[in-house]
Each structure stands twice: as structure tokens, then as C-alpha cells.
């Protein structure tokens, strides 16, 4: 009970910080008569959000799907590749340089090429979201699998565990904290990837809406789309954190 109360108190600090920023922002735009095009005030943005609520909601849906599909694909391909890299020296030597090379290419630069390959629809955004989310998942999972305490593996061997039992009962759960750490980074990157894709070429999504509103000098709407985008990123991050708490209940309540 006291813990819950403490959590509430802890939540007050960031809320207080945000409130201060909003008040200063509002006062600045009101007192100095800043143009709505240059910097809309928080109340302008709120007004645009209320007015365009259904539009924003409609445009959020494709962006959300792009992020989730891209992230899910990154998990589905990234974890098996990490397992291969962590368990085979040969595969590690072959794949690691390629992974690092693909990672060092700026995703904004490949986005137009991907658009040519996959077209203007959801597939190209999904591909870019996947590309940016993939790397942290592979690297963190491989690190986690390699960081399995040798004592636990030796214990499993002393119990005559088969290689698949060693993997499922020891290595994989030992790597879970790393997989979740990578996923938290990856899911926020997936949002960035999806928006990059929409910027380069699309006809729907929050990134597309932001670009359109901007070109019409409708700054309040552009900012409203931005607020929704960050809410989307935070929401996805929170879902990963909740999944972490569900799948790793042991991580809490230590000394």
C-alpha cells in the first residue's frame, strides 16, 4: 500500500515538470504574440487535437500497425539469428560484420530504395521499421545468451540435460532481461522507422499527416500529430515494460 502511494508520489515529479514547461510555453506565445505558424501555443495544439480527433485516430492506426508488424518481425527474425550467432563461432564470424555494416547505413538513405522495392503501401514502412528495430534485438539477445552464467550451464550438464533443455531451461531465460532491454530500444526505434517511411512516400499515417499539415502551414495540426506520435511511442514502450514485468516476475522484490 505504501509502495503504491510512493509510486504515485514518484509520478508527480515528471507531471510537475511537464506542467511547468506547458505554462512557460503558453505564457511565451501569448505575451510575445508568437505566430501560430511558427510556434502554436499548447491551447492551440489542444484545440487542433480536439477538432481533428477522428482524423488523428484514423491516421494513427496505419502507423501503429507499421510499428507493431516491423517490431514483431524484428523479434521473430532477430532472436533466431542471435541464437545462431551466440552458439556458432563460424556463423558469428560470417554474420556479425554484415550486421554491423547494415546498421551503419543511414536508414533515411535506404528508405527511397525500399520504397521502390515495396511500393508506397504499408510494406515499405514495415520494412524500414523492421530494419531499425532488428539490430538492438540481435545484439542484446546474443549478448544475453553469451552472458549465461557458466555455473548454470554446468549444473544443467551435471543433470544430463539435452542441448535443447540447456537452451530452453537455462540460456533463454537467462537472456530474457537482455531481450527486453533490446526490445525497449527497438520498439521506440520502430516508430522512428515507420515515420521515416511515411515521410519518404505514403498516403496515410501520422507521419504523412504531419507532413501534409506542415505543407499547408497548419502548424497546430502538425504539432497535434507530433503529440500523437510521441504518445504512440510511449504507449508501445509501456507495453514492453508491462510484458517484461509479466514474463520476468523474479526481477522484482530482491534485497
Amino acid at each position: 500500500m505504501t509502495k503504491l502511494l510512493n509510486n504515485w508520489r514518484l509520478a508527480l515529479y515528471p507531471v510537475a515538470g511537464i506542467v511547468v514547461i506547458l505554462v512557460v510555453w503558453q505564457l511565451y506565445t501569448d505575451l510575445f504574440g508568437v505566430s501560430q505558424i511558427v510556434l502554436p501555443s499548447p491551447t492551440d495544439i489542444w484545440g487542433a487535437m480536439v477538432k481533428n480527433n477522428s482524423l488523428l485516430l484514423r491516421e494513427t492506426w496505419p502507423t501503429l500497425l507499421e510499428c507493431i508488424y516491423g517490431f514483431a518481425l524484428a523479434l521473430a527474425l532477430g532472436i533466431p539469428i542471435a541464437v545462431a550467432v551466440a552458439n556458432s563461432r563460424t556463423l558469428n564470424l560470417i554474420l556479425y560484420p554484415i550486421l554491423i555494416a547494415t546498421q551503419s547505413i543511414p536508414k533515411v538513405a535506404v528508405a527511397p530504395i525500399i520504397l521502390i522495392w515495396f511500393g508506397i503501401g504499408m510494406e515499405s514502412k514495415l520494412a524500414i521499421a523492421f530494419l531499425v528495430a532488428f539490430f538492438p534485438i540481435v545484439v542484446d539477445t546474443a549478448t544475453g545468451l553469451r552472458a549465461t552464467p557458466p555455473g548454470l550451464i554446468e549444473l544443467a550438464r551435471s543433470l544430463r540435460a539435452s542441448p535443447s533443455q540447456v537452451f530452453w531451461k537455462v540460456q533463454f531465460p537467462a537472456a530474457l532481461p537482455f531481450i527486453f532491454a533490446g526490445s525497449k530500444v527497438a520498439v521506440t526505434l520502430a516508430v522512428i522507422g515507420a515515420v521515416i517511411g511515411e515521410f519518404v512516400g505514403s498516403n496515410e499515417g501520422l507521419g504523412n499527416l504531419l507532413l501534409t499539415a506542415n505543407s499547408q502551414l497548419n502548424s497546430p495540426l502538425a504539432w497535434a500529430a507530433l503529440v500523437w506520435l510521441s504518445a504512440l511511442g510511449i504507449g508501445l514502450f509501456v507495453i514492453v515494460v508491462i510484458a517484461e514485468k509479466i514474463f520476468m516476475p523474479w526481477a522484482e522484490g530482491g534485497h
Binding site: 552464467p149 555455473g151 548454470l152 554446468e154 549444473l155 550438464r157 551435471s158 543433470l159 544430463r160 531451461k169 537455462v170 531465460p173 537467462a174 530474457l176 520476468m248 523474479w250
Partner: peptide, 18 residues
Amino acid sequence: DPHPDVGFVFQQPNLMPW
């Protein structure tokens, strides 16, 4: 190979934290 009729206690507890 490890014998099925043997139990081993290590220097470290080696418990699975999960």
C-alpha cells in the same frame, strides 16, 4: 558422462533466478 544416480552441489548455489 554424468551418472544418473549422482547429485552435485557446487561452490555457488547456481540457482535459476527465474
